[in-house]
Design a protein around this nucleic acid. Structure first.
Lengths: 137, 137
DNA sequence: CACTTATATAAGCGTTGACTTTTATAAGCG
DNA sequence: CGCTTATAAAAGTCAACGCTTATATAAGTG
């Protein structure tokens, strides 16, 4: 059971993107996803369950709310799997290249959180700046 | 159409792993996958088609053989998508952590190719050292 | 307490997807 | 050339998946 299996779905990827900004209640996630993909609450609840089952997200009850959070371990595995392919794009001349690549990586460290991206267009609207642009049939 | 959709299948992931060592003929891939997963030649050919369609692999004809190779672009996209989660495991104290993380990354650069891993056990055999351990139902 | 809000589960259904077997294409080769 | 080898395409099957509607659970609230 590999995290890749769960990441095959655009809704689940989007949920993880949202969670990457920090904990979110099921309700908050639901309204965003509903707006973007036009699917029902139970559908989203099922996606959340899959994310839980694959260990990609964890839940914490707080009253009647469920607070979801990213669980990094399986994503790290994905990252590790990609390892073997990094050479395909990080291998520029190996001397200069190492420096360039390091510079880029250096920059991405320490860059924690970012800023509201909220309010995405409804699922029929034209693609906005979202990273993961996909449509449901 | 995201590369993640194609990477959801263990056979396709395994094919890419094999290709990460360099170009391979369809036949070579087929015999390994057949041994490991016990599926037919056409099944594998179909997986290769999917990999082509998603731009994850390219083909080159040489006589009657087809030489497949990894096409990195979509994998780089996957890598980019993971970007936002790296903080979840690279963020240790930010001072010491940066050094540690850099050290690790440093090491992985320059490490091109490796050595024969060939001869994997048949699909019923116990798990060997393969990275991507999964079984077909 | 009845009533609403927040979320999950259950059951059913259509579509997609990963196989299979069969067949086509086309390059080597005696 | 006929025959084999290497690979892809075609057509059919069956299970898994993502969705829907309906319903359960359980915490807040007047």
């Amino acid at each position: 059971m590999h995290a890749f299996d769960a990441l095959g779905d655009p809704v689940r990827r989007r949920i993880l993107e949202l969670l990457s900004h920090g904990e979110q209640t099921s309700g908050a996630l639901t309204s965003v996803i509903r707006a973007e993909f036009g699917i029902s609450q139970p559908a989203i609840s099922q996606h959340l369950r899959v994310l839980r089952e694959y260990g990609l997200a964890s839940v914490r009850a707080e009253g009647t709310r469920r607070l979801y959070a990213v669980e990094a371990a399986p994503l790290r595995e994905v990252d590790a799997w990609l390892e073997r392919f990094r050479g395909f794009w990080e291998q520029r001349s190996d001397a200069l290249g190492t420096e360039l690549a390091r510079g880029r990586r250096e920059r991405r460290l320490g860059r924690r959180h970012g800023g509201g991206d909220a309010h995405h267009a409804a699922h029929h609207a034209a693609h906005d700046g979202r990273t993961d642009e996909e449509e449901r049939p």
